[in-house]
Design a protein around this nucleic acid. Structure first.
Length: 263
DNA sequence: GTGCTACACATCCCATATCT
DNA sequence: AGATATGGGATGTGTAGCAC
């Protein structure tokens, strides 16, 4: 007993609408881009549930302007020396992010809708190095706000994952974690991950071997014993041969206090 | 520039679930 | 029971992005 020690890990939680998971969009999101997006999300969510409007600059039925205080940014997502450049690169790429919907009608007629997620992202340190300014249109932020579908993401975990696929799958699993068992078809999971439209991973075998299995392994923290402290769900799944359905079992685990034995 | 990692496959071999 | 289809494992290839 004296050999055991209790460790309490400080956690930073963020809420995100599970129906607006970034996983449903392009696969080319870096970890930093996703993190900045989640911080924007936090400001909008706080505004909508009337927790805080301190970072909202203006709001209309068409457009919302908000700011992200740089002092709140988690340094873990940036390289130590080049935070400024990291921020520049990520903001530049974020400003180009789109939501794309492409449909093919019966006669092969293609319909499409492209929307930029952010209409403007500004960071001008010579004027104001404390804040990043973000402009977002109503078409986008209205998708974010249905409060009944928020799920809680753990930033520490997200920063520890080393694959974008893992982050997206983690978002999806967390969004369903209020249920113990879920069934998703292979196709719907590919759609959620953005692989469907790209035509990637058409074979379950490849998808499982390259995407799902490594991600679940990482989420369950089977790789690194030192990271045992940092997990909040455990995921198990099975898929019957020939079936489209994948059955997931998601178990919540308490990540905050764990007893670890020192040898 | 080099080296590393993540990613998206393709291919080969083998085990086994499912069908006839 | 034997054939066939499906899926797992291992390996290799090429590309892209990033760090140094």
């Amino acid at each position: 007993m004296s050999n055991d020690m209790m460790e309490v890990v400080a956690r930073t939680k963020r809420f995100i609408n599970r129906d607006f998971s970034l996983g449903e969009y392009d696969r080319g999101w870096t970890k930093l881009e996703r993190y900045l997006f989640i911080e924007v999300y936090e400001v909008i969510k706080d505004f909508y549930i009337a927790t805080s409007d301190k970072n909202i600059i203006s709001y209309s039925s068409d457009l919302m302007r908000l700011k992200i205080p740089t002092s709140n940014l988690n340094p873990k997502f940036f390289s130590r020396k080049n935070m400024g450049r990291d921020l520049y690169d990520a903001a530049k790429r974020l400003s180009k992010k789109q939501i794309n919907t492409v449909s093919v009608g019966e006669g092969g007629q293609v319909g499409f809708s492209f929307k930029n997620i952010f209409s403007e992202i500004v960071y001008a340190p010579e004027n104001d190095k404390e804040n990043i300014y973000v402009e977002i249109t109503s078409q986008i932020y209205e998708e974010m706000v249905p409060i009944e579908s928020y799920c809680i993401l753990d930033l520490k975990l997200i920063s520890d994952f080393n694959s974008g696929n893992t982050v997206r799958l983690y978002e999806i699993f967390k969004s369903y974690a209020f249920r113990k068992k879920i069934t998703l078809s292979f196709t719907s999971l590919r759609k959620k991950l953005g692989f469907f439209e790209e035509g990637s991973y058409e074979e379950w075998k490849h998808f499982n071997a390259q995407v799902l299995k490594p991600a679940v392994k990482e989420i369950n923290n089977k790789d690194d014993k030192n990271k045992e402290l940092f997990r909040d769900i455990e995921v198990f799944y099975e898929k019957k041969r020939g079936s489209q359905d994948i059955n997931f079992t998601i178990v919540k685990v308490d990540p905050i206090v764990k007893t670890i034995s020192s040898k």
